[in-house]
Simulated scan of single mutants.
Amino acid sequence: MTIRNTRRADIARAAGLCCTLGILAGPASATNGYIANGYGGGSKGMAGAGVAVPTGVLGLARNPAMGLKVGNQAGFCLTTFAPDRGFETSGTGPLANGSYDSRNSVFVIPCGGANF
């Protein structure tokens, strides 16, 4: 077997593996907001860009290296989190068919920090 044929066989195997993994992959399911894009008003207002900009002591949760630029301060915040916590099932897995909703729809998440 020549090197050229070996490479073609390797490429064919890799393509077959990629196709198999693509077929086996299930659909992605996500909600909006289980991971915070920032901590504190300034950092949340930048929707994640607070990693690169010092927005105060609460922004240090995303990038602690900004502690030198923030200086000595302390801060506290309360964030409300209201995810859509319901789903419907139709004969899959151990759950009975039907619609399920959570009893809790709004959560209050405290955050705080200090830098010295």
Rank of each mutant, 00 (worst) to 15 (best):
15 A>W: 08
90 S>N: 15
27 P>C: 07
76 F>H: 00
19 C>Q: 11
5 N>C: 02
5 N>E: 15
49 A>N: 13
57 V>M: 05
22 G>C: 04
78 L>F: 14
99 S>G: 06
88 E>T: 15
47 A>M: 05
34 Y>Q: 09
9 A>H: 11
68 L>K: 08
83 P>D: 08
91 G>H: 00
95 L>K: 04
101 D>N: 09
37 N>W: 07
9 A>F: 10
45 G>N: 13
51 V>Y: 15
54 P>H: 05
29 S>Y: 15
104 N>W: 05
101 D>T: 07
48 G>M: 01
39 Y>R: 02
4 R>N: 14
28 A>R: 06
21 L>A: 10
13 R>N: 12
60 L>E: 08
75 G>K: 00
37 N>A: 10
56 G>S: 11
79 T>V: 10
107 F>C: 02
19 C>S: 14
68 L>G: 11
26 G>W: 03
53 V>G: 01
3 I>M: 11
49 A>D: 07
64 P>W: 12
62 R>N: 15
67 G>Q: 08
103 R>H: 05
86 G>E: 15
73 Q>S: 08
81 F>G: 03
33 G>E: 05
6 T>R: 15
7 R>Y: 13
39 Y>G: 00
105 S>T: 13
103 R>K: 12
81 F>Q: 08
55 T>I: 06
84 D>Y: 10
103 R>V: 07
101 D>R: 05
106 V>R: 02
65 A>G: 07
41 G>Y: 05
5 N>D: 14
46 M>E: 08
98 G>M: 04
17 L>Q: 12
95 L>M: 12
33 G>L: 03
52 A>G: 02
98 G>D: 07
10 D>Q: 15
115 N>Y: 03
33 G>V: 04
88 E>L: 00
69 K>R: 08
50 G>Y: 02
91 G>Y: 01
29 S>C: 09
75 G>R: 01
113 G>A: 01
40 G>C: 04
95 L>F: 14
19 C>P: 00
93 G>C: 04
23 I>N: 06
102 S>F: 07
34 Y>G: 11
80 T>Y: 14
29 S>N: 14
94 P>Y: 06
57 V>A: 02
53 V>N: 04
61 A>W: 06
88 E>S: 13
5 N>A: 15
62 R>G: 11
56 G>R: 03
72 N>F: 10
99 S>I: 05
114 A>Y: 14
98 G>S: 07
32 N>W: 05
38 G>S: 04
111 C>T: 10
73 Q>H: 01
52 A>H: 08
65 A>R: 09
24 L>K: 06
64 P>V: 09
7 R>H: 13
79 T>H: 09
103 R>P: 05
113 G>Q: 01
36 A>M: 07
85 R>Y: 12
70 V>W: 03
23 I>Q: 06
